[in-house]
Amino acid sequence: MKLPMRNLILLVLMLAASGMAVALKPTKKIADQGPTVELETLIPKSFGEWREDITSVAQTVDPQQKEMLDKIYNQTLSRTYVSMQGYRIMLSVAYGGDQSDAMQLHKPEVCYPAQGFILHGKQADSLQLQGGGMLPITRVSTSLGNRNEPITYWITIGDKVITSGGIQKKLVEMSYGLAGNIPDGMLIRVSSIDPDKALAYQMHDRFSNQMLAALPPEARVRMAGSR
């Protein structure tokens, strides 16, 4: 084969590969295909034994962290709830309409130490849901001075719950991308100021179950994925 002909074939193959990459690039955002997500109305201010505590303010993110979160997410919501027995839970939800490579999740084990907290531990766990099913979650233990704050969180990409932001996130994104879709995503964080981690995680599970049970089916899929 003459050299010019070989080069021509290689050029054709490269152009074909480039064209295929463009054709397979996802262009449709899932966030634009259904009802608009409004965190303020998506999550009830009262459910089960919990009511929003308007006298308390959820943990305030420092200005630099807030600027970063505003770049990553379209919406964020922070509320403090109090139970009938007086136990307080801080809920933080962050929603991004584009969870592609340009939109990376900002997980508690990263953002808490960035604000001066000490990270004592992190472990994968699961939440037994009312009505059946298991929700993969992550437990994180942090402290700042004499403030001990156990954290429970989970992440959704589209209608899938993931337990890490690495390969698993990439695989879920690819599964959506093959269908031409760009998934949206949520990070749901539940925490409390409590030196008793076991009690705190028990209350987090109780709170999360009652919150999810209070949501209509479509909102529940947004918050906890489809199982």
Results as ranks from 00 to 15, higher is better:
residue 79 R to N: 02
residue 221 V to R: 07
residue 65 Q to H: 08
residue 180 G to L: 10
residue 33 Q to V: 12
residue 111 C to A: 05
residue 23 A to D: 11
residue 93 V to C: 12
residue 103 M to R: 11
residue 38 E to Y: 11
residue 24 L to P: 03
residue 227 R to L: 07
residue 2 K to T: 15
residue 11 L to A: 15
residue 83 S to Q: 07
residue 21 A to H: 15
residue 75 Q to K: 05
residue 53 D to P: 04
residue 181 N to M: 14
residue 205 D to T: 06
residue 169 K to A: 08
residue 114 A to M: 00
residue 110 V to L: 05
residue 197 K to W: 04
residue 20 M to R: 15
residue 192 S to M: 00
residue 105 L to Y: 04
residue 103 M to Y: 05
residue 139 R to Q: 14
residue 85 Q to A: 15
residue 44 P to L: 03
residue 183 P to T: 09
residue 216 P to G: 01
residue 30 I to Q: 12
residue 226 S to D: 03
residue 160 K to G: 00
residue 84 M to G: 12
residue 77 L to C: 12
residue 220 R to V: 06
residue 112 Y to Q: 00
residue 124 A to R: 05
residue 149 E to F: 09
residue 184 D to M: 08
residue 82 V to D: 08
residue 222 R to A: 07
residue 121 G to K: 14
residue 75 Q to R: 12
residue 90 M to P: 02
residue 183 P to S: 02
residue 79 R to F: 02
residue 137 I to E: 04
residue 202 Q to N: 04
residue 160 K to H: 01
residue 44 P to K: 11
residue 194 D to M: 01
residue 61 V to Q: 05
residue 74 N to D: 12
residue 158 G to E: 01
residue 74 N to C: 02
residue 32 D to R: 05
residue 20 M to D: 13
residue 11 L to K: 04
residue 179 A to M: 14
residue 16 A to C: 15
residue 164 S to I: 03
residue 207 F to I: 10
residue 46 S to P: 13
residue 192 S to H: 01
residue 190 V to I: 14
residue 203 M to G: 03
residue 47 F to Y: 07
residue 37 V to Q: 10
residue 16 A to R: 12
residue 87 Y to T: 12
residue 116 G to H: 08
residue 88 R to G: 02
residue 164 S to T: 12
residue 148 N to R: 10
residue 114 A to F: 00
residue 33 Q to A: 14
residue 34 G to E: 09
residue 131 G to V: 14
residue 141 S to T: 13
residue 143 S to Y: 06
residue 12 V to W: 03
residue 194 D to K: 05
residue 9 I to E: 06
residue 219 A to S: 09
residue 101 D to Y: 13
residue 60 T to D: 04
residue 156 T to N: 01
residue 145 G to K: 01
residue 84 M to E: 14
residue 152 T to S: 13
residue 81 Y to L: 07
residue 131 G to K: 13
residue 29 K to A: 04
residue 212 L to C: 07
residue 129 L to G: 05
residue 53 D to N: 08
residue 93 V to G: 11
residue 82 V to C: 09
residue 83 S to I: 06
residue 185 G to N: 11
residue 129 L to P: 05
residue 101 D to F: 14
residue 202 Q to W: 04
residue 76 T to V: 12
residue 208 S to E: 11
residue 62 D to H: 01
residue 155 I to V: 10
residue 71 K to Y: 01
residue 202 Q to M: 08
residue 168 Q to N: 09
residue 89 I to E: 05
residue 166 G to E: 09
residue 136 P to Y: 00
residue 211 M to N: 02
residue 160 K to E: 01
residue 129 L to Y: 07
residue 184 D to L: 09
residue 62 D to T: 01
residue 62 D to I: 02
residue 50 W to S: 11
residue 55 T to M: 08
residue 126 S to H: 02
residue 189 R to N: 09
residue 104 Q to V: 06
residue 170 K to G: 11
residue 44 P to N: 07
residue 111 C to T: 07
residue 214 A to H: 00
residue 80 T to M: 07
residue 211 M to F: 06
residue 110 V to Y: 03
residue 70 D to W: 03
residue 113 P to V: 00
residue 14 M to H: 14
residue 35 P to W: 11
residue 94 A to H: 11
residue 159 D to G: 00
residue 89 I to R: 06
residue 60 T to K: 09
residue 44 P to Q: 03
residue 52 E to V: 08
residue 176 Y to G: 09
residue 107 K to L: 07
residue 75 Q to G: 10
residue 205 D to E: 08
residue 189 R to W: 13
residue 217 P to I: 05
residue 162 I to L: 02
residue 148 N to G: 10
residue 101 D to R: 14
residue 97 G to T: 08
residue 145 G to V: 00
residue 64 Q to S: 05
residue 134 M to N: 06
residue 69 L to M: 13
residue 162 I to C: 03
